[in-house]
Design a protein around this nucleic acid. Structure first.
Lengths: 199, 199, 199, 199
DNA sequence: AATGAATGAGGTTTCATTCAT
DNA sequence: GATGAATGAAACCTCATTCAT
């Protein structure tokens, strides 16, 4: 089996193991056994446990970002784009359940790893902030800190909503999408109203 | 020194250690040393590392919940209560920085521990949901799942906002409180509007 | 059993293990087993494999140096002192067979360890050089490099002689001492003669 | 490329690798990489790591012995031959620095390897002993053990002198040769004198 | 003939946990 | 009651060595 293919296979099985108990709980022994590969292979391919973890985070995070970007290219103006993105986001969560868990349920762990996750999160929050600012006609009306804070709040709401959804049974994705779209719109609008009439 | 007092003292020093690198990174050796207590003491008092961790989570979580409840007793109607609670929440985050970090930055770690954190989170989400339902005149207008989802989203937004705030320098708490209050009101109002005009 | 005593015991059994195959060939597992001590103890006491090795080198080297120094305090002028020292040296080799082997048969291995051995060797060579210079009435007659070189040559001759002796059966120590004393005297005298009549 | 040629090439690059950190520190991976040869080639040619090491020791040792033998064929009597040999010895050390290091700085390492080195050393000591015995008019005057011991001492002195010299800067080879020649002559003469006047 | 790919076995090290004093 | 001393188990990682192509 050629190397790149096997690398993907290993990452595939590493996901659930990492998702189950987090970075520290996962052991290279277990991953090797589940992947039906010897431990030295893991090290030959990924260098270290951290290397494997980062590779997994990277692949998953890149996939999520790609999908969000692609979903944002839909026609129909800002509202349609917003809805498309949120839909894509939740589709991703549904499809890559473990990947999502690993990506966003773990902020602790060893620092280099945590930094990787934080960086990805920051990228998403940045994209959201740009969306917020784009949604606002006059950007200057919302101070930088406020839009930054709002962006992080919205991202956090989305994460939390996604995690909640993963534990429910029988809640339709379109409903969750609608609620999240609403929350985003309402909170942005609310922030704007407040900004226009300062305290 | 009597036992309960020493227990509190140990928990006090355990907080920063857990906050620094998460559950796994912390070692009983280190905690024992900074607590100036022998390791067998730790085991006599808390049974195990997990026991110690859970005790810390418990104490911190109870404190947070108590403060939220107490803050909700303020006079002045629902809006005032909401603002008071959010203010109290952020005051807690500011004051118990490590406690907050341990409580909500760590969703990974060993499963029993994660469950403890999840349970606490659920309690808070429940409280928020009740607040939402109380804020809505006709509760029936918002289906159960929707208010549950909204509650989780709002909690997630708050966590994320708090974490963002901890990393900023010089953002006033009152501003963060105002933004969060706005987000909560706007998103609840938005959810109600949507619920009244079904798709 | 108190800690210092056990430390000595561990060093005692570590000697033969290190002597057998050198630093790398020796394993902590084996040392622990032979010492009837668990591996974590080894690490608690010596920090690392290297730490244990250096501790052993240190103890043995210090013992050798002490004995050489003490032997040099004998009465009877330089010749008697020389003979006393050489006798003591070979007595040490005979008595601490493994210690000697570890000390001087191993110049390779990881650099920090090798440096430790080299430093000890240098100390001995220094002592020999001082002896040479003391033996020479007018020190200025022998240039610094020459006495340094001679010192190292004499030390090397002694090491080699000792190793050869260890592999013989039935060669009396007094004979070896006599030969070595002769070599030292003759070579120093030879160096002096040559220095007085430059090429 | 024909096999013998490639074998030599591999040995050429293996030298520095072995010299750097000793037998154990060197890895087949590294040797294969710097030799630009695949690892299975190494095993096809030399059988094992030890095989490769022994092959290197062998080649280097044979070269040294050859040069010593050839240098001994010079005209001019025993003194001239002695000087020529010592000069050749130090020329070799200078030229094959790594080879020398591997040959004589490593007495540790795995036992079979050490035995190889010891054997070579013994050959040289034998040659020296024959030289000593040839230098003595009446061989019987020096008992066998004494000349053996002297030979080993002289060899050790030479090794030590060579190692010392490698670490100095700006000491001329001819000086070192002269010192070593002196030491050999003086110590042999000294041994003879003592033998004639037994204790 | 030559190699990319793969591994078994073993290395050092750490840590939660428990006796015996 | 309190602890210094001790350990079983398991973690990550490396390396000499060999197939299958």
């Amino acid at each position: 089996m050629p190397r790149p293919e096997r690398e993907q296979l290993i990452l595939d099985v590493a996901g659930p193991v990492f998702a189950r108990g987090g970075y520290h709980e996962a052991s290279m022994d277990e991953i090797a056994k589940v992947a039906e590969v010897s431990k030295p292979m893991l090290y030959a391919y990924f260098g270290s446990k951290e290397g494997l973890y980062v590779a997994y985070i990277d692949r998953t995070g890149r996939e999520l970002l790609d999908r969000l970007v692609r979903a944002g290219r839909v026609d129909g103006g800002a509202p349609a784009r917003l809805r498309a993105r949120i839909d894509e986001f939740l589709a991703f969560v549904e499809e890559y359940r473990e990947g999502w868990t690993v990506l966003f349920r773990e902020a602790c762990s060893s620092s280099p790893v945590a930094r990787e996750v934080a960086a990805l999160r920051e990228q998403i929050a940045d994209a959201v902030r740009r969306m917020i600012e784009a949604a606002v006609a006059a950007q200057s009306e919302l101070p930088g800190a406020a839009s930054d804070a709002l962006a992080h709040a919205i991202v956090g709401a989305g994460e939390s909503l996604a995690n909640w959804w993963l534990e429910q049974r029988g809640v339709a994705r379109e409903d969750v999408v609608a609620w999240y779209v609403n929350l985003v719109r309402a909170s942005v609008a609310g922030a704007l109203r407040t900004a226009r009439r300062p305290r």
